[in-house]
Design a protein around this nucleic acid. Sequence first.
DNA 1: TCCAAATTAATTGCGTACAATCAAAGAAAT
DNA 2: ATTTCTTTGATTGTACGCAATTAATTTGGA
Lengths: 144, 144
Amino acid sequence: MDKYDALKLENQLCFPLYACSKAVIRSYKPFLDELELTYTQYIAMMVLWEKKSISVKELGEYLYLDSGTLTPLLKTLEKKNYVKRERSSEDERVLKVSVTDQGIKLRDKAVEVPAKMGSCIGIDGEEAQALYKILYKLLGSLDN
Amino acid sequence: MDKYDALKLENQLCFPLYACSKAVIRSYKPFLDELELTYTQYIAMMVLWEKKSISVKELGEYLYLDSGTLTPLLKTLEKKNYVKRERSSEDERVLKVSVTDQGIKLRDKAVEVPAKMGSCIGIDGEEAQALYKILYKLLGSLDN
DNA sequence: TCCAAATTAATTGCGTACAATCAAAGAAAT
DNA sequence: ATTTCTTTGATTGTACGCAATTAATTTGGA
């Protein structure tokens, strides 16, 4: 009809993506507050729990985040005693981030979070599967 | 296998959602730079182009954003002469935002953006449709 | 060996996000 | 009319996101 139809909010794919992402992160907040973690800190801890020790660069590759975001975030996690930051002795440019004992303890509390969140989400398993698949495809096509 | 499987990044639905949202916004940047708009300013302008004049509260309802985000953003758009901000005479609490002539001109440049973006997205129409539908369902279930 | 290029974080600066609080204005009730 | 409640934005403070720049270090030639 209208030559400006393409600019209507309801005709965008980006907008529900953007709004959903924020809505989901908002839904995590009450659970993450109990762990004193923000959402971004939570996903950073996820990688750290798995890898135990990792460079800032590698961590950024997993999370699609750069040092401008990660440096202050990791300093905050260090203040909370969840991680330790130290330069690699082989290559002084590399900063290795590793989980502390406190950080490891946190994992047992955190393991409850995904189930709690799952019950907030109003789509069924099949849709979640489909969503997951399309999102990773889209991510793969945009990333680089 | 592992009792901590639920905490793996690849088992989260939230993460690709979060990463995709940022990746898409990043992809818009080169096109929006030409209009001197950020992504959030762009979607705010979308609503304003449609509605011509709207209160901050209503705008926030469309965008799922609060005044803490919108007030500084709208002041920036006002500095760029794309919008005008003035109190309603009927109810002084209400601040009406309206598009200026400059703002209306911008629409003709912006109308090219959705097509340009479309060609960046690596999923087909059917998948995009499915994604759109699931995202709005999820958004509806979380929002309140 | 020495120097240019590349790698890796840190820093800076701007623009969101959003919770929490505040203040002003209007509405509603007795 | 006075008080109370509600609505609406603005403000403040914390935490991202990310581009751009800088600094330190290592690597890879000539």
